[in-house]
Design a protein around this nucleic acid. Structure first.
Length: 566
RNA sequence: GCGCCUUUAACUCAGCAGGAUAGAGUAACUGCCUUCUAAGCAGUAAGUCAUUGGUUCGAAUCCAAUAAGGCGUGCCA
């Protein structure tokens, strides 16, 4: 499935070998004492003048070798054999760094490898086929989704793509809280609105959902059933109302999320855990774990034994389980019953205190708590005309996902929400998101893609060839700094995916795409393609192709369109 | 009170398994379209990396304390 082309990794591995060989040679020649060489790093210097890679090998050896770092660096440089490698030059610099410069061959090879890999370029196998279940959005089915769900959706969906690209076997899941207190509250609200239709005096409970969607449900229900349920007993009436409205709400969630380009592998209903007896079974398992006790008529779980700040109630004194129990049952289902290696949950920051609680329960059940990875997402602050934008025109309530997508393109929403890491307080500039200029990062990146498409078409036309360019068999090496910088960055793509996957954070990829677009635009401004010499034109078209492939691979992951014309 | 998160240029943010002169975009100011998409490029200016200590050859990065802000701390979810 995945190609193992990682131009940076292979270069780094080669360098480590070259340096180790050089040490060996120095020892053999008696120039340095034979002591254990400490681990050293190969890194990409911030400053390009310092080469393509640099190593601190000489610096970390200063102590064991009892020699000044610069002297060691000079010795190492003398002992390095670069012939036949992908490097053309090494030099000592600064406090004792050794800087390495890649040969032109490496650059040509990288371009060729990317084109060969195509859709697979960037994929990695670090996931090793491990099964990951990512649960995200899981919005309350009692009402519309809000702006936090919009962030969670874009983040979760993109994270799934990243993990897939990194070689994990990923499932997307939505957990529907269709049981418990909030459904009771939903029933309260619907019932009150329904009864109000026939009796204006009827009062709405203060704790009820006040949104217009509730009123609409009640009205539509009354259109179908009239006052038939007004005289019924409350339990029947509530049941009928919930049975009517809940599926509509769930359908709406699904519809809205589909518009947002999110489709789940599974919608998991909390109610099934109650119906199947799993909730009771988990309660028994927890009791058996020895970490529960009864107090004041309630059943408590000793979360303090696992570092939480206080113990928590599992079963209320009235015999009804708190939300905690089905949640534990749900995670048990993910990690044990269904056997996922890892469960990733994306939660709003207001739930962060819940993390130690959930992990404590897993531990009590003998499950490694590290198998649950909770991504905490900080709040989003919408800004319009330089001011906080809090209210939605339609409902007068918090801005809904639907309202947001009315205001800005889906591409922009998905891109913007992945611009920052989840755990950063996020300011979303609505004016910027709809702007069609280079200020808007989405357009900037898409424009690079469209530009390449245009160049390719024009150049082929000019050369009078029928789609046969570029020929990658014999690329002439790049020479300009713009080309070199662009290829260096292309080569870093697989590492960026691995980094994003390891941190469960897609945002490095978003920023990577902006940098790639920027380097491409610079290259475009500086290097002619259409009227270049045939060999040069071919090489540059190949480079364009490699950029286009990489851009497309990223935008596909984010489910953002790759326009050929803008 | 206790816990988690945040604090880097005027604004929004990168950088944080310690490394060589702290980066980008926006806003401000200058240039560049008879030449492959100006939705673009080039340039100028902008910093006490919240503060104070510590760790060491070296700290925006690690540790501690302080300050400011956000969020938690329910027999709500």
């Amino acid at each position: 499935m995945s190609n193992f082309i990682n131009p940076v990794k292979s270069a780094v591995a080669e360098l480590k070998e070259l340096i180790t060989d050089a040490f060996g040679r120095l020892v053999a020649e008696g120039k340095i004492p034979a002591v254990a060489i400490p681990a050293f790093n190969i890194e990409v210097p911030a400053n390009q003048a310092h080469g393509d890679f640099s190593s601190n090998a000489a610096m970390v050896c200063a102590k064991p070798l009892k020699l000044p770092p610069r002297e060691i660096a000079t010795l190492l440089c003398g002992a390095l054999v670069l012939e036949g490698s992908h490097f053309k030059k090494s030099e000592t610099a600064g406090p004792g760094f050794i800087n390495f410069f890649l040969s032109e061959k490496w650059f040509s090879k990288t371009v060729k490898d990317i084109i060969t890999a195509g859709n697979d370029y960037g994929k990695s196998s670090i996931g090793n086929g491990k099964k990951i279940l990512v649960e995200f959005v899981s919005a309350n089915p009692t009402g519309p989704m809000h702006i936090g769900n919009a962030r969670g959706g874009a983040l979760g969906d993109c994270l799934c793509s990243v993990l897939s690209a990194a070689g994990f076997c990923v499932s997307r899941e939505f957990y529907i809280n269709d049981a418990g207190n909030q459904i009771e509250k939903f029933a309260d609200s619907l019932e009150a609105r329904y009864l109000q239709i026939f009796n204006k005096e009827h009062e709405m409970p203060e704790s009820a959902y006040q949104g217009e969607d509730i009123t609409e449900h009640a009205k539509n229900f009354a259109d179908i059933h009239g006052d038939k349920y007004a005289g019924e007993n409350s339990a029947l009436r509530r049941e009928a109302l919930v049975e009517y409205a809940l599926p509509l709400n769930i359908k709406k969630l699904d519809d809205d999320l589909s518009k947002y380009r999110i489709t789940y592998d599974k919608w998991f209903r909390e109610s099934t855990l109650h119906e199947s007896g799993e909730v009771e079974r988990i309660t028994e398992l927890l009791k058996k774990s020895g970490y529960t006790y009864e107090q004041e008529g309630a059943l408590w779980f000793k979360t303090t034994a696992f570092g939480d700040e206080k113990d928590r109630v599992l079963i209320r004194a009235n015999g009804v389980p708190t939300y905690y129990v089905p949640d534990i049952a749900y995670h048990y289902d993910k990690l044990v019953t269904r056997g996922y290696d890892t469960a990733v949950d994306i939660w709003g920051a207001d739930h962060h205190g819940y993390v130690p609680r959930m992990k404590a329960a897993l531990q009590a059940l003998g499950i490694d708590p590290d198998r649950l990875k909770v991504i905490i997402m900080q709040m989003v602050r919408l800004v319009k005309n330089g001011e906080a934008y809090k209210l939605s025109k339609r409902s007068g309530k918090a801005v809904t996902l639907e309202t947001l997508l009315d205001e800005i393109p889906i591409d922009a929403a998905r891109f913007f929400f992945n611009l920052r890491e989840a755990n950063s307080h996020f300011e979303f500039d609505l004016d910027l998101a709809i702007e069609k200029t280079s200020k808007n990062p989405v357009y900037y990146v898409q424009y690079a893609h469209a530009r390449i498409c245009s160049i390719q078409a024009k150049s082929r036309e000019e050369a009078g060839v029928s789609g046969e360019l570029p020929q990658t068999s014999n690329l002439i090496p790049p020479t300009t700094e713009e080309e070199l910088a662009l290829i260096r960055h292309l080569a870093a793509f697989p590492d960026t995916i691995e980094l994003a996957a390891a941190d469960y954070d897609p945002s490095p990829l978003t920023r990577y795409s902006m940098e790639l677009a920027s380097l491409f635009h610079k290259f475009y401004a500086q290097c002619r393609i259409k009227d270049a010499e045939p060999d040069l034109m071919n090489a540059r078209l190949a480079l364009c192709d490699a950029v286009k492939i990489t851009l497309k691979n990223i935008l596909d992951m984010m489910k953002i369109e790759c326009p050929e014309v803008m």
